[in-house]
């Protein structure tokens, strides 16, 4: 992806990831797969959401990479939920209880921080700024 002088993006690369693509993977493999795509300057749209321990591991591994890769500044991460009426805690509890979060009806957007400037979020909407 390149940014033209007038700040318009050229060739933004988005990777749509069905949950089936990571269902059989371990936490380490899942995080590695996502981070490899991010390091390739891709924005990942994952069907479902990661478990809390996977999200925190993603942050942990991201920080380790920021420490080691000169041009990598980190990630932007947000979860969009289809059911606005259901509270965060109920969703989270269901996610934890099921252990399978791909069926939660959520979408997770993860992008490299140098590509995705900001993901603004409130319960009813999400805005992604490139």
């Amino acid at each position: 992806m390149r940014v033209k002088k007038n700040n318009k993006l050229k060739g933004l690369s988005i990777h749509i990831m069905p949950y089936s693509e990571i269902r059989e993977l371990t936490i380490t493999e899942r995080v590695k797969k996502i981070l490899n795509l991010i390091l390739g300057n891709r924005v990942v749209i994952l069907q479902g959401r990661l478990r809390p321990e996977e999200e925190i591991r993603l942050i942990e591994d991201t920080m380790a990479m920021v420490d080691h890769i000169k041009t990598f500044k980190g990630i932007e991460l947000a979860v969009v939920d289809s059911n606005k009426e259901e509270g965060f805690f109920l969703k989270m509890r269901r996610g934890i209880a099921r252990g399978l979060t791909g069926e939660s009806g959520s979408l997770t957007v993860i992008g490299p921080a140098n590509v995705v400037k900001e993901i603004k979020k409130d319960p009813s909407k999400i805005e992604v700024f490139f």
Binding site: R51, P52, E53, E55, I56, F88, M92
Partner: peptide, 10 residues
């Protein structure tokens, strides 16, 4: 914020 709280909840 949600990730931290989610982990504490878990």
């Amino acid at each position: 914020n949600l990730t931290i709280i989610g982990n504490l909840l878990a």
